[in-house]
Design a protein around this nucleic acid. Structure first.
Lengths: 339, 339
DNA sequence: TTGTACGCGTTATCAT
DNA sequence: ATGATAACGCGTACAA
């Protein structure tokens, strides 16, 4: 039904110049806010621009200015991230807000295959963006290497595995884990254990460290059950193991809300009440936390702030500032009913 | 600690030409896979490219080619979308996969403010992308209007409110609602109601239509409780109302899983068992569905396929094909234990 | 205050 | 098969 005519040729400076009766240089000056434009010219130009529907061509502008006013937001492992991770959305929005305030365009690039990796690397190398925010970098990441080689202003969300020289922003996993464990202890629990997950990852080992910090001399390694993944099923089996080994256990710090939810299911199956018999706390304040019975006490990641700070780090570098190597963000403890 | 030297000047065709001892034209031909390049030249060029680390400049390429080989993925209302909607991630991944196969770069643009709207409009008008996929378009959307004015090849995910000439891909809300309601009826329920949500949106009214389709002559409007939002709390209060009005109710179709979860909570509070006393079915197969007790029977949206088809629609237009105005995707019914 | 002309890094046309 | 050279659309020094 649609007329579906040919794509209209986009108007150029030239067209505007002809209609307005001034030179192309003057048009360009007007567009870029140069003060040396007479009132009469200004009016003519404004009318002409409206008439022909002129918008400056991005590519031409980029080419001559040598910058694009846009920065990439690169995300890996999108499957787990976009489907499960409750924080990615917030990080995205925070980064976008900060960049938007600085009048920069954010372009989210998804790396989901070998092919994507190559294409994104070319995209970056080709100068399509002025900087990059990278979330969930992997060890020995080709994209990360490209960024480094180009000395592209960048900031990582989370600690990049390979020791990069780039800046990064992380939450204080250790401190937050310590804080919530201390609160759990303050409820009078005597035998509190931890289901530690993903110890090969930075976040996982830090959370365990925070836990031992809080326990101090009372720390008993046998009360720690390590699991590979931040998952519901891991939590469930780990809790079962913990109950077998230490039936007297009366408190558990789970390395994530999903893990905690699994643990609570195991406790329920074992006939232990929460928080009556055993107190449970999680980490992330993800969607899990509000849906467990009872609702989960947990640690809230300041997702938007992570994005905001990462963006600020990149923008700062763009302005020539040398950024702090690391930004540590505090988390908020959300006290609900599971402990 | 980082050396933090100046950004290296990026190598150009010229540099490669000098090192390889051939002309720029030959370099360009080699890079673009033109067959007319001698073996000797080829070798020299390959070595030179590796040596100077050459990557074609995106902006220059775009300028002369008049296309960018990249397409925008525009998402509005990111707050609700990125935080609540379980499908957005899948749509994103599906679109990215399809575009990636066609060697196109996808750039996700987030519209989260007035400012974003303007900037994105400029971005599109400036020719930064060859096409656009738009999810969750709003009525009278400035971005949508820009797309239309530019006759930018585009595809909407979901039905765009303003009657656009553009193509769109949607799930068969009506048919799916009908199917799952029929299955619910087939379990022997006599008095089945619906918690209808977001009737001002296309998805909401279609789901209600499917419900009435299934009921046929047995349809009783008083068994329909409309709520404004697809939310847990809406579901809870609506179910309470339904129970008050019709204590004999023994089946409920909730317009979304979140709504269904709320309804189940209300049923639990009222001492009704699920599925014993009343059968409950939802819509979306979101994270809610697996976490209710018992797990929820629901309708699974083919999220990745939505993204894939949208991308295909845009790519087709780019090739000059005239796309179908509408693509309707079937959903799968997931039968769990709540009905 | 305004116009002219050059350059940004490519691709594409046309000779050769 | 390859080398000159003209666009592509814009910003900006320089001249006027």
């Amino acid at each position: 039904m649609s007329a579906n005519g040919p794509r209209p040729r986009r108007a150029t400076v030239h067209d505007v110049a002809v209609v307005a009766g001034v030179s192309r240089g003057t048009i360009s000056r007007y567009v870029n806010g140069d003060p040396y434009v007479s009132a009469s010219a200004r009016e003519a130009i404004e009318a002409a621009i409206a008439q022909v529907g002129y918008v400056p061509n991005t590519a031409a502008r980029h080419l001559v200015m040598q910058r694009t006013e846009s920065i990439a937001f690169i995300v890996h492992e999108p499957h787990s991230l976009f489907v499960d991770d409750p924080n990615i959305g917030g990080i995205l929005l925070g980064a976008n807000a900060a960049l938007s305030d600085a009048d920069h365009q954010m372009a989210v690039l998804i790396v989901d295959s070998e092919r994507d990796t190559d294409r994104v690397a070319r995209y970056l190398s080709g100068g399509a963006v002025d900087g990059a925010i990278i979330v969930s970098a992997r060890a020995n990441d080709p994209v990360g290497r490209v960024v480094e080689r180009l000395k592209l202003p960048a900031a990582f969300v989370g600690h990049p595995p390979g020791a990069t020289s780039a800046a990064f922003v992380v939450i204080d996993n250790r401190g937050s884990a310590r804080t919530i464990t201390e609160r759990l202890l303050a409820t009078g629990r005597r035998r509190v254990g931890m289901i530690a997950a993903a110890l090969d990852r930075d976040s996982g080992s830090e959370r365990l460290a925070g836990f031992t910090d809080a326990l101090g001399a009372r720390f008993d390694p046998d009360l720690v059950e390590p699991v590979p993944l931040y998952s519901y099923s891991s939590g469930r089996t780990a809790m079962e193991a913990l109950l077998r080994r230490h039936p007297e256990i009366d408190g558990v710090f789970a390395a994530s809300d999903a893990v905690a939810a699994g643990a609570m299911e195991a406790l329920r199956a074992a006939g232990r009440s929460v928080p009556g018999d055993v107190g449970v706390v999680g980490f992330d304040d993800s969607a899990w936390a509000g849906r467990t019975l009872p609702p989960l006490s947990t640690v809230r990641q300041p997702a938007e702030d992570l994005g905001r700070h990462a963006a600020a780090l990149v923008l700062g570098q763009l302005r020539g500032e040398s950024p702090p190597r690391e930004v540590l963000l505090e988390c908020e403890v959300i006290w609900r009913e599971s402990a």
